[in-house]
């Protein structure tokens, strides 16, 4: 058993499930947005902001946003533990991206509901 305090779910299985679950959500969100753009080639600002005024869309977007945060964290954490041998470098990298991802999530919420 390898203990690891900085991993997202604290165990491999939850990280693994989170990464797969978030990937599915992100794929669905991407497909939806692309589909919407294709079916509305003459997209206007009103239409676009109307879409995001809808609560369901806001929930979907928020979910996708949280999923990006979680997915990116698991991925970047893995990359850092693969390639960064020095604890200081690795920890700084993780701290930096932790802050960045947190900021993105908060900023995103502000945009959606602000």
């Amino acid at each position: 058993m390898v203990a690891s305090v900085t991993s997202f779910g604290r165990n491999g299985l939850s990280d693994w499930i989170i990464q797969r679950f978030t990937a599915v959500v992100l794929a669905a969100y991407t497909v939806f947005i692309l589909g919407y753009l294709i079916y509305n080639p003459e997209l206007t600002y009103e239409q676009w902001s109307g879409l995001f005024a809808c609560t369901a869309m806001r929930i979907f977007s928020l979910l996708a946003l949280l999923c990006i945060g979680a997915h990116a964290w698991v991925g970047l954490w893995t990359v850092s533990t693969d390639y960064m041998r020095s604890t200081a470098v690795r920890l700084s990298f993780q701290a930096f991206f932790g802050v960045v991802l947190f900021a993105y999530v908060v900023w995103g919420i502000q945009i959606l509901w602000g």
């Binding site: 058993m1 390898v2 690891s4 165990n11 491999g12 299985l13 990280d15």
Partner: peptide, 12 residues
Amino acid sequence: LADLDDPFSVFR
């Protein structure tokens, strides 16, 4: 299984 359930042993 409990011994393998960390982020490294199997999931790497």
